[in-house]
Design a protein around this nucleic acid. Sequence first.
DNA 1: ATCCTATCCTGGCTGC
DNA 2: TGCAGCCAGGATAGGA
Length: 276
Amino acid sequence: MPELPEVETIARLIRPRLEGRRIEDCEVRWTRTLGGLSRPAFARAVVGARLSRIWRRGKYVVVDLEHGGRASGALVGHLRMTGRIHVEPTTWDPGPYLKVRLALDDGTSFYFIDVRKFARLCFTDEPHVLLGDLGPEPLSDEFTPAWLAGALRSRTRRLKPLLLDQTFLAGIGNIYADESLFRAGLHPLARSDRISPARSAALCTEIRATLGEAIAREGSSFDTFYRTPEGNPGSYQDEFKVYGRAGKPCPRCAAPIARIVVGQRGTHLCRRCQRR
DNA sequence: ATCCTATCCTGGCTGC
DNA sequence: TGCAGCCAGGATAGGA
């Protein structure tokens, strides 16, 4: 699923192809993808706009827009589980799952594709409001051992649902939560307020390391869904220590990896290396 | 405050 | 082989 490393990869790869381009036309095949805006209202907002900057916040891809050199809102995309973004010649066939296409002024189009219908591409006047509830960026200077220790202490939640809560920390999903908790030697069901400062510092370090390594590998593609905008799979799935490895040996102690359900999410852990 | 469940979707898997 | 039924997953809303 596209989590922070996948979305970062997508943003990096589409940035050079999109920055400075102008939207000449748009095609909307599934209105709900727009997140509430009607097709005409969406078209009015985006057609004629210049794409000034492409960036990422949590699991969101953000495209800042300008009209006549003046900031005029942004496109904020969320791929949920199966969304994809491509930038290809306008003659390219996106297949049956195209939801929105933005025709650009250089003969290419921005394709927003989703096998399911959960992904969203929203226009907003104020992206910072839409993104305002997100927690800190795990790869920013804000995310320090001291911050994490305090944040964990101020809650009484179990670690895994807390890491998945985007208002707590932005960008972590099921895969990187399981991998980070394993690497830090923490049990997904451990209560956040009972984590020692040393463990919490380890969690901070391992979250940063896991996400950084995954970005270096262009994310994880363990199923047929995630592909980079170039159509290539990432390769971080080859580095998974616990995710999707139920029954296989723990890379640290060789005990079989367990799969449990936490907050309705499949959760992978080593019962020997990750104590409650 | 936190947890639990349902909802949204559909390809792919399991089991008969 | 065909088909029904279940499952995964992120975010969100409503209820306990």
